[in-house]
Amino acid sequence: MTGELAIQIRDLKKNYGDVEVLKGVDLNVERGTMLALLGPNGAGKTTVVKILSTLAGPSSGSVTVNGYDVVRQRDGVRRSIGLVSQFVALDWMHTGRENLIMLGRLHHLSVANAKVRAQQLLEQFDLVEAGDKQVKGYSGGMKRRLDLAASLLVTPPILYLDEPTTGLDPRSRATMWAAIKQLLAAGTTILLTTQYLEEADQLADKIAVIDGGRIIAEGTAAELKQGVGKERVELVLASGGDFNRARQVIEGDGLQHDEDTRTISLVVDGAAHVKRLLDTLENKGLEIESLSLTKPTLDDVFFALTRRGNEPTNQSTDDNHDEEVGAAL
């Protein structure tokens, strides 16, 4: 048995024909915690989830889930997990309720209990009204919620969420996040994949960054962001004159000007720094039209991570990072 580890992945490799999709992944998830697997399209996130769910077999390496080996003890693994896969996994000809009852029975609830449980979950996920309509007419958010509900018919100790919020509007995303937080609070071990650093940041205890079939960094959100640089502030001055004078007084890392849009942007270190900037402008009688803060994006994380080791000092990393952002703007 693996003791405290809910998921243990050792040197996992996966080939599809000649294509090496996973090139030696090592990953641990402790019980009752949430790990976010963060990576861009094609990184191998879904492949990891499929192997962890027994939907695909590893080419080599060892993978245990809840103490069960994914190759030799499939049923043990299947009894331990709930899966919300990347693409909706429901019978679209059935209604939401019919899906839940059917899947409840396949999870080995009695007919009566499957019905009760379906009703409970429809209520919990705000689907009572839609419950008796065919799934093919559901919105993306409704399908996602039903998908999550279907993964909770019997309480799984371990839950996989493969990009559960991709394509959702901010409100549905917030609902989904709240549901996920609740599950975590109830002691469920969660493995979440996402392309959004913000999502990983909001929810996860630990983040593993995967790219090209390898884990390229692992740590808490704070640890990862250290390598990325800080937030940037973007100030739009009220007039051309103000812009020109502001140029003279504002200094800082990664400073950038754009005369056409009267915009000045630079790296900031927390709210106090922003306040100091605003005070400076006010003291000089300069007026700003708008102010915005941008957080490091996934691109920035990758950029920073892949540069690690090549660039010894923080300063130069930041500079390069700024150029990249400047180019992207």
Partner: peptide, 8 residues
């Protein structure tokens, strides 16, 4: 996929 991930 969902069926296959259930112990049935």
């Amino acid at each position: 996929d969902r069926f296959r991930a259930i112990a049935m």
